[in-house]
Computed example of a mutant assay.
Amino acid sequence: MRQISDHVWIYPQGEKSERVEPVVGAIITTNQTVLIDCGNCPSHAKAIQRALKERKAPPVSTIIYTHHHWDHTFGSCVFDAEVIACQQCAHELDKMAEIPWGPMWLEHEIRENPLMEKSNQAKLLVVDDWSELRIVKPNRVFSDQMTLNVDGITLQLQWVGGPHASDSITVEVVGQGVLFVADCFYPPPFHLRKPEDMVDWNMLNRLRKESIQWYVHGHGEPLTSDEVLKLCQQAEK
């Protein structure tokens, strides 16, 4: 775990890109922990649990899904926590819950759609025990925005959509200078990506605020406000 503000920590992305382990956020108060996403499989989520325990963090009370993609949601079955998501995310998870997840289904899908090979091979690599896996649907759903108060800390959830997933949201930790943007400004997933699809720097630029010092995205080091400004300015040239 790495601390980036008084109450905000991150569990960084894994070093092996083929494992598709995203950055997971943790808002830690005296009484509870709120996760921003939850790991890409049960074993990844258990590693996050161990890291929280080492920090003597209180139990995870809430998980906020930034979007429905498997690498951000497959770990939630490990936690006994409330789950919050936007309406579009909840709809996508309803469909995901109907899938008979496991090697047989994934290999069949690869044969039917070779463009899914990279994603499905990653799932086969990271999930050790498919009997553990369960798609956890949200307990609380919002449409455009939601404010969550956690022991005096305010979280502002905002649906933003974007090229990567139409259900993407951001999570601002108000007063802590941190905005979780996850994958919202990334190009679409590989199997949906066209040659002209690129990182949407204009979207990230629109999300900039003077009060934000850290922009935490889903697959890489958190960006400082200066780094975001520089990247957006370079993209305009």
Score class of each variant (00 low, 15 high):
residue 164 H to N: 15
residue 161 G to N: 03
residue 23 V to M: 03
residue 50 R to E: 14
residue 74 F to N: 07
residue 65 Y to D: 09
residue 197 D to C: 00
residue 225 S to N: 10
residue 206 R to S: 15
residue 183 D to H: 10
residue 184 C to T: 10
residue 156 Q to V: 08
residue 66 T to L: 15
residue 72 H to K: 08
residue 140 R to L: 11
residue 217 H to K: 12
residue 94 D to C: 08
residue 6 D to Y: 07
residue 57 A to E: 06
residue 2 R to L: 13
residue 120 N to R: 13
residue 197 D to P: 00
residue 181 V to I: 15
residue 231 L to W: 07
residue 206 R to W: 06
residue 228 V to D: 09
residue 89 C to Q: 11
residue 35 L to S: 01
residue 199 V to C: 02
residue 31 N to H: 13
residue 156 Q to C: 07
residue 11 Y to M: 04
residue 36 I to C: 00
residue 98 E to D: 14
residue 140 R to I: 11
residue 20 V to T: 10
residue 73 T to A: 06
residue 34 V to C: 03
residue 143 S to V: 12
residue 187 P to R: 00
residue 23 V to W: 03
residue 126 V to M: 05
residue 186 Y to N: 09
residue 78 V to Y: 08
residue 32 Q to P: 00
residue 51 A to E: 15
residue 10 I to P: 02
residue 57 A to K: 08
residue 179 L to M: 14
residue 136 V to R: 15
residue 26 A to D: 00
residue 180 F to A: 01
residue 219 H to K: 10
residue 76 S to D: 09
residue 207 L to K: 02
residue 104 M to A: 15
residue 177 G to H: 02
residue 90 A to Q: 12
residue 4 I to Q: 09
residue 104 M to T: 15
residue 197 D to Q: 00
residue 125 L to N: 12
residue 31 N to K: 14
residue 99 I to C: 04
residue 236 E to H: 11
residue 77 C to Q: 06
residue 62 T to Y: 04
residue 148 L to R: 11
residue 223 L to M: 14
residue 218 G to C: 09
residue 188 P to N: 12
residue 12 P to C: 10
residue 173 V to F: 03
residue 201 W to H: 11
residue 64 I to F: 06
residue 203 M to P: 01
residue 169 I to A: 01
residue 65 Y to T: 06
residue 107 E to A: 04
residue 170 T to S: 03
residue 130 W to F: 15
residue 51 A to I: 05
residue 167 D to H: 09
residue 172 E to H: 10
residue 209 K to D: 07
residue 103 P to D: 07
residue 112 E to V: 05
residue 142 F to D: 02
residue 150 V to K: 01
residue 19 R to H: 13
residue 29 T to D: 02
residue 173 V to G: 00
residue 161 G to A: 05
residue 120 N to M: 13
residue 207 L to N: 02
residue 135 I to R: 06
residue 232 C to K: 08
residue 146 M to P: 00
residue 132 E to F: 04
residue 122 A to R: 13
residue 88 Q to W: 11
residue 160 V to H: 08
residue 209 K to P: 00
residue 140 R to G: 02
residue 36 I to M: 10
residue 220 G to K: 05
residue 56 K to Y: 08
residue 139 N to E: 11
residue 218 G to K: 06
residue 169 I to K: 01
residue 204 L to C: 04
residue 78 V to P: 06
residue 76 S to I: 05
residue 17 S to D: 13
residue 64 I to L: 12
residue 50 R to V: 12
residue 158 Q to H: 13
residue 162 G to E: 01
residue 108 H to D: 15
residue 223 L to T: 01
residue 65 Y to K: 06
residue 128 D to H: 13
residue 24 V to S: 09
residue 8 V to K: 02
residue 62 T to W: 03
residue 190 F to P: 03
residue 174 V to F: 05
residue 32 Q to S: 13
residue 49 Q to S: 14
residue 58 P to R: 05
residue 221 E to V: 14
residue 237 K to E: 15
residue 233 Q to W: 08
residue 100 P to R: 10
residue 209 K to S: 11
